[in-house]
């Protein structure tokens, strides 16, 4: 599942002012790559991630995902794409309150039309993969930040997407929990999944095989590490 961005721009209209959040991004990510996106605050990283994650559409330019031009998809088709092909992890976890961990993890399968029994079985399995099977009946507010993020990762994984995207997944975590989370991403990458994450911390970017530096809505540098 390849990702091909060419000359992607995103313009926000703020009152009468135009904000060029993305000023023309051309980026190529091959299946199985582990890419970190870095850059100063306000440089457009989140905007880029939202477009990559099919949460938003470019103002101009082309985004080919898996050979499909995303600009031609309608809202429902975008939703299906997010549901089936992409797992998204947020900085602020974004778990639904008043729902158990298990239900949170099973939620994407509700929208995929998976039958309830299978849903719960699979959610349990994925929770075990992130080491939280003992917490499946807890509500999110009964978990630590690191545990919540692991639940969020489990939720991102549950429909077996080929791409995992994470916008500052360790931003709210201490170093230890951050490392736990990053180890899971490494593990997922070694299974062949494409990982794209945004981070401010060079230590976190160390986990990635490629680092893309963004500044003022443009790609400043694109580095591959030799391992």
């Amino acid at each position: 599942m390849s990702i091909l961005l060419s000359e992607v721009t995103k313009v926000y209209q703020l009152g009468g002012e135009q904000v060029n959040a993305l000023a023309g991004i051309t980026l190529n990510i091959s299946p199985g790559e582990f890419t970190a996106i870095m850059g100063p605050s306000g440089s457009g990283k989140s905007t880029l991630m939202n477009i990559l994650g099919c949460l938003d559409r470019p103002t101009k330019g082309s985004y080919m995902l898996d050979g499909q031009e995303v600009a031609t998809l309608n809202d429902d088709q975008l939703a299906i794409t997010r549901n089936k092909k992409i797992g998204f992890v947020f900085q602020s976890f974004n778990l639904l309150p008043r729902m158990s961990t298990l239900q949170n993890v099973a939620l994407p399968m509700v929208y995929a039309g998976v039958e309830k029994k299978e849903r719960l079985a699979r959610a349990e399995q994925v929770l075990a993969m992130v080491g939280l099977e003992s917490r499946m009946n807890h509500q999110p507010n009964e978990l630590s930040g690191g545990q919540r993020q692991r639940v969020a990762i489990a939720r991102a994984l549950v429909n077996d997407p080929t791409i995992i995207m994470a916008d500052e997944p360790t931003g709210n975590l201490d170093t230890k929990s951050g490392d736990e989370v990053m180890n899971i991403f490494s593990e997922l990458n070694s299974q062949g999944r494409t990982i794209i994450l945004v981070t401010h911390e060079p230590d976190i970017a160390e986990y990635a095989g490629r680092v893309v530096y963004v500044r003022d809505g443009l790609i400043e540098r694109d580095e591959w590490k030799v391992r």
Binding site: G53, L55, D75, D76, A79, I80, R82, N83, K84, F88, N94, L95, L96, L107, P108, Y111, A112, R155, N159
Partner: peptide, 16 residues
């Protein structure tokens, strides 16, 4: 609103 955003991000469609 936030719950709706999360559900949509996870793949909920208009009719859901």
């Amino acid at each position: 609103t936030r719950e709706i955003g999360i559900r949509k991000a996870l793949g909920a469609r208009y009719q859901n």
